[in-house]
Amino acid sequence: MTDTTERSPIVSTGALIEWLVPFAFLVCAGWAVWHTPAYILSFIPPASDSLVEQMSQLHYRKDVTPDMPGLFGGYADILDWLALILLPIIFVIGTRTIRVAPMEFQNWRPIDRTALFVGRITMILIISMTLVMLYEVFLRYAIEAPTLWANELTLWFAGYVFLFSGLYAMQQRCHIRIFLLYDVVPRWAQRCFDVMGAALIVVFAGFLIFGSYKQVFITKFYKWEMFGTAFDPPIPATVQPMILIIVALIAVQAVINVISDWNLEPEVHTAADDIDQEELEILKKSVGSD
């Protein structure tokens, strides 16, 4: 197997486009998710008239642009269609403009671009979540006018951050691993361990998806279950399906990691790996040691 590893130039990291594209993707994704009832009613309406009426009332209550007519005889208006069309376009642009930072895993391949872009989306989500929390703190303690939506929106963002960071951590090989036995065996045995680990992840993902996809996608997503608060975001209808999607992507990424790392030289892990050299230098300076 030849090594077709792609290495990104370090000098091109941190470009403005690497901030704008994930932000644009989140804006379009947020709009599309908030108006998903319009897509369900337009493309795959429920068979029951009562469910159609219930979801249509939900759509009109949550629609950001209720005065805009739906296109093609459906419920989704032109902005809903625009967000839906732009999502895959922006995603492709984002995966093509990825530049790996110096602290990231350098032996990456073109197929890793999806996980890398998901990592950039996660970073923008963390920034957005922090801004929402700061805004709520300012309103609550400075103006004494707290919002009804900041807590649930932060919780919603945090759920996605937790899920997306799992996929990114798998691609970066920064998930928790125990090397006590792994380091003392020959390379062929390490490859066997890698295959066994990926196989266990795939089996777990398969059983999880098989056992819960009906409840998640039919009960939660298709009926668009809401959170039941004043803000009432669709957290159950969005987070639970995303769990299955991310678990499937993590399983795929685990297989990709095994294939990508097959011919790489094994890393040697020592106790020094747990020491942060920068932090150690700061401690030395603080005590006046050279």
Rank of each mutant, 00 (worst) to 15 (best):
I178M: 15
A145F: 15
N151D: 07
V252G: 10
V132L: 11
I246M: 15
G73K: 12
I90E: 01
M123N: 05
L16R: 13
Y160N: 09
A115Q: 08
F91A: 07
W108R: 14
L125M: 12
S212N: 13
G30T: 05
T36E: 09
I143Y: 00
P234W: 09
R191D: 01
D232S: 05
M55Q: 15
E225D: 11
V33C: 06
Y222H: 12
K285C: 03
E281K: 07
L180V: 10
K220L: 05
A38L: 10
F227T: 03
K62V: 07
V239F: 15
F207Y: 06
S12D: 15
I121Y: 12
T130G: 09
P234Y: 10
L167M: 12
A145M: 08
I256S: 07
V258I: 02
F217P: 08
L16Y: 05
F25P: 04
I17Q: 15
T122D: 14
Q106P: 04
N257D: 13
H175M: 08
E265P: 08
N257A: 01
W224Q: 02
W188E: 06
W31T: 02
V268F: 13
I40V: 12
T5V: 13
E265L: 07
H35A: 00
F207A: 04
P45M: 08
A189Y: 11
R187N: 05
Y182V: 00
L208R: 09
V247P: 00
W262S: 01
Q215G: 01
I256R: 14
L181E: 15
L153H: 10
T4Q: 14
P233T: 08
V21F: 12
Y141W: 08
Y75H: 13
V21Q: 01
V92P: 05
F25Y: 13
D112G: 00
A29F: 09
M133R: 00
P236Y: 07
D77A: 01
L249H: 10
M55F: 14
K223V: 11
V27M: 09
G14Y: 13
I246Y: 13
S50T: 04
I275D: 15
Q240A: 14
M196F: 04
I85N: 00
G94D: 08
V202P: 03
R61F: 01
A158F: 15
D194T: 06
A115N: 05
F25N: 02
L134D: 08
I90S: 02
I245Q: 14
T2F: 11
I176D: 03
G206F: 04
P110E: 14
I44M: 15
A158D: 08
A76M: 12
I17T: 11
F91S: 01
A32P: 04
T2D: 13
G211A: 05
D77M: 03
H35K: 05
A47C: 08
P233W: 14
F25T: 15
A189D: 02
G73N: 08
R177S: 09
V100R: 14
D112I: 03
R120T: 01
F164G: 03
I243T: 05
T147S: 11
T4K: 05
Y213W: 14
E53C: 00
R177C: 09
W19G: 02
Q190Y: 07
R61G: 02
G30V: 10
L283G: 04
E144N: 04
K62Q: 09
K223F: 11
L181K: 11
E6K: 07
E278I: 13
N257G: 01
R187D: 06
K220I: 00
K284V: 04
W224S: 02
G14D: 09
I282Y: 14
E225W: 12
